[in-house]
Design a protein around this nucleic acid. Structure first.
Lengths: 263, 263
DNA sequence: TAATAAATGTCGTTT
DNA sequence: AAACGACGTTTATTA
């Protein structure tokens, strides 16, 4: 059973099992988004194993090969398979069964429906862009565009050529030509971030007499990070993602969305 | 508008905005699971900020206060709020808008619907147990139940009383009464795991002449972990989660499900 | 409340 | 393909 071009959409309210089976099969082979709401049990075998006993859930099968089983609670799906999985639909012992295979990890997910409340087969059109801003990357770009955000006289180096260890956010020189290693965090910097910065600074001080400054840029310092920072001889510069977003907007005179990072 | 006891379920196929609004509002105030499929844009403000431009999506509102916006692709929701959030439904400029507040983190998610394909208000009954096995915790329990899985003559200490640093998986003594620190991984142990074990062993060797053995228990060693392990003077014991699950079953003579960890 | 570790983490980038 | 780090990580556990 193939989906007709003029009927890319199926909604079945309390379908019988055959109706549900044909709709789901057609939807999956037609690369549609399939929603099944009903009473089901779910088994998973792969990196771990699990069994979910019978209950009413919302199950999604997406055209990219991802599958999700959602209970009426929790943020996370109780069972799932990532994109790239293969769907197989069948009738087994009078029940609708959908199996989801992921060859790469040798994983299999099986959902078996005892009762079906609703089946929806949808050709969802979603080309909308997703913009996430005030990211760490935005903060980096703001400092490169306006180095005084970090310190008067700061001259970043990263903008000109990539630095040896690519994991360093920004390298540059202060007014006195002292090398500065800049580590950026978009949230309050933790002790972990401090230790990370120390390692980066060590990379440049190793086997050298040259003084190197390590600057942690973040909106705030997390509990305990202040003391560790001081004890490791590093510095802190308070800077919020919001401030960076404003700077980007002003610097280039374009709408903020221009600077969003597309996901 | 309250949901009547005898109509705990609403399915609206291509509803008009007023029908949709009343159904969603009733569903949310009645602590039902609400599914809205339609064309919407989504804004988020909180730890970061995001804007999702118009497109057709599946949006879930659960009775526990969690919300999910799913595009027709990807495993992860494009936007969400965790359980405990507050829902507010309203009609705004002729569109259905649902806002989700999370006071604690000062986060807000707003979904605005231009077109509504489907609204479902459901009273999902889901008491089914979820069992996950072959977890790291299961491996630990298996070794405690059957110490020879690790090594002939191994006597675990953890079972008797909790150990000082609670982050160590198992502590015990070998046949020669040498202290053993056991780190368990359910997947191939990475270099990170090796370094972790080294830190734990150091905790016991610090300021002591006593020899301490560090054993990494895992089904396999990841690339590079072998060399690091040897260079740090640690040992490896191959053990699979499956083997542990079998041992648990044999040891106690109960069905495997008895040993599942309930999530 | 804060810190820490685990997750079927997922997802991207780089080696 | 493996490895490494980031994530609005989330979640559970422990101090």
């Amino acid at each position: 059973m193939a989906l007709k071009k003029d009927s890319p959409r199926i909604v079945l309210d309390r379908p019988n099992i055959d109706e549900a089976y044909h709709a789901v099969k057609a939807g999956i082979s037609g690369h549609k988004t399939v929603v099944i709401i009903g009473k089901c049990s779910v088994d998973y075998e792969g990196r771990a194993s699990s069994r979910l006993e019978s209950g009413e859930r919302i199950v999604l099968f997406k055209p990219d090969g991802s599958a999700l089983v959602h209970r009426p609670r929790d943020y996370a799906p109780v069972n799932w398979q990532p994109p790239g999985s293969l769907f197989r639909t069948r009738l087994d012992e009078g029940q609708l069964q959908v199996r989801v295979f992921r060859r790469k990890e040798n994983e299999i997910l099986s959902a078996r429906f005892e009762e079906i409340t609703l089946v929806a087969v949808l050709d969802l059109r979603d080309k909308g862009e997703f913009y996430l801003y005030a990211s760490e990357e935005d903060m980096k770009r703001a400092i490169l565009a306006e180095p005084s955000l970090l310190e008067e006289g700061f001259r970043p180096l990263t903008a000109e050529r990539p630095v040896e260890p690519g994991f360093i956010d920004i390298l540059g020189f202060d007014r006195a030509n002292t090398l500065m290693v800049v580590e950026i965090k978009r949230k309050a910097a933790t002790k972990e971030a401090v230790k990370q910065l120390r390692r980066y600074v060590d990379f440049f001080t190793a086997g050298s007499e040259q003084k190197v400054r390590g600057i942690l840029v973040a909106p705030d310092l997390a509990r305990g990070a202040q003391r560790l920072l001081a004890s490791l001889g590093l510095e802190f510069k308070a800077l919020s993602p919001q401030r960076c977003a404003e700077t980007l907007r002003k610097t280039r005179g374009k709408p903020l969305t221009e600077f969003f990072v597309h996901q």
